[in-house]
Design a binder for these strands. Structure first.
Lengths: 146, 146
DNA sequence: CTGGGTGCAAAAAGTTTGCAGCGAC
DNA sequence: GTCGCTGCAAACTTTTTGCACCCAG
């Protein structure tokens, strides 16, 4: 499996370089990472890698289909492995925590958007903002279902 | 109704200025506008208004609760009237079109996220990316509801 | 060897801040 | 008249680009 990704690169006519390997590893390790975080991660392994290379590499990896990005919170692009499968993100406004959900969790929504509006949802990009259990005020936290 | 908003400002201890009125009008007129678009709009009415004022005003209006912002596509903050009510946004990747949905459209999702994960969804911030009817490949586009 | 990839530095885009003067109340 | 608000310019942050050198194939 360690050879899968570089084949993907070569297959698309791109070269396999240590920098690209490092960026891909960083994306894999730190899930939901911003370009900056990825840069920091890569840099602490090998010095000399440049920010611009990280940006260029991310763009390329995404184009090849190895990684994808989502918009979590203000302007933060966050990258993750495409192979990890498409998942929905729940982002807590209070603690900033990110929860991943399987596609199944939003299937009803996707289907109704399709049926009612003919809209084809890109589930992998779906991000839901709100407040997670542990950050909700204890009182009216529950007693909703009632 | 033209006097409602300035009371909201004064009530919060802020002054009512022409610039603030202009920004609010711009937000009202062009729905889902970015700071830049708002700036452009304001500028074409009155010259001399500054970008920084637009940013400061938007921040203030949001704090007072007159407007809200959502994250639509990459890093674009888009502002809209809070009074317009919370609505979900469908963003088409192909044509960039934005469709607004009433909260009701996602109620099932919101309820299941609450029930299953204790997550309190911020519906006003919910944005769904995908492809709209008119941009979907004609073939498998329809024939669902059939 | 050759051309794509990288580092470096400068540019561009988007947003914030300090400060002096102006005008809402 | 006072103090908050604004304009202006400069600083900052984040991302992009041009160019010469270097190394994967």
């Amino acid at each position: 499996m360690s050879q899968t990704w570089d084949d993907a690169l070569r297959a698309s006519g791109y070269r396999v370089t240590p920098q690209r390997q490092l960026v891909l590893e960083a994306v894999t390790r730190l899930e939901h990472a911003t370009p900056e975080e990825i840069y920091a991660e890569v840099k602490q392994t090998v010095v000399g890698v440049n920010v611009s290379t990280v940006y260029r590499t991310l763009e390329l990896l995404e184009q090849v289909g190895l990684v994808t990005h989502t918009h979590l919170g203000h302007g933060a692009h966050r990258y993750h492995l495409a192979a990890q499968g498409q998942h929905v993100h729940l982002v807590c406004r209070a603690c900033g925590g990110i929860t991943e959900l399987e596609q199944a969790a939003v299937r009803p929504l996707v289907e109704s958007l399709d049926a009612d509006y003919g809209f084809d949802t890109d589930v992998g990009h779906l991000t839901v903002f709100g407040t997670c259990v542990s950050c909700r005020p204890p009182n009216h936290a529950k007693m909703r279902r009632s």
